[in-house]
Amino acid sequence: MKVIDIKNITKTYTDSEVEVHAVNGVNLSFEQGEFAAIVGPSGSGKTTLLNMLGGLDTPTSGEIHIGGTNMASLKGSQLIDFRLYNIGFVFQAYNLIPVLTAKENAEFILQMQGIPKKERETRVVELLTAVGLGDRLDSRPSKLSGGQQQRVAVARALASKPKFILADEPTANLDSNSTENLLDIMEELNREEKITFIFSTHDARVVKKAHRVITLEDGKIISDEVKAIH
């Protein structure tokens, strides 16, 4: 089942009257349960593509359909609500809310969805335990290591049961152990819960784990390789 369908999208910026095509005529689709990495050198358009997939940015031309919904048809709060219910985000710099504990950070999304307190708590504790932070529920981000913060970010992204998770260079600020640990958790969630993960990354370890690797250069897809899953 297609989760994402991208039809010939471009993103053009004008810089000092010079047009820069950050994404240039990309056609792409993702199925439910994919574990895909978008790779490419800096400036190749990875983050721009991911931002458009997440509804954080709009394409200059072309269409993005998520679960059958044309993203261009959503405006203002509709788009924000769409993200809330359908897309999970994991950012390079974790981007947790510093004044909230690990549990509250993950719960934050569910509260905005209007989920009752008891249900919220059960799900959040379950998720944080799944990412190995069952004993750090009440710790604020400043008391957690980078790896732990990123695991909270994964739990937050998963909390709303999104259609897919977009992770923009999620391992860029992590050491080897934390990276290994985080990738194992995400791979396990993908395998067992059939959650779709799409990464943008430079990290060879992520590429190695990915089941599909899409390579971008100058805003265009130059390869789209599906690996055999063992």
Binding site: L56, I80, R83, Y85, A93, I97, M112
Partner: peptide, 14 residues
């Protein structure tokens, strides 16, 4: 950035 993240993950601007 934090405010941007809050809106990105689904918090309405209001």
């Amino acid at each position: 950035r934090e405010l941007g993240v809050m809106v990105a993950v689904g918090m309405r601007k209001g």
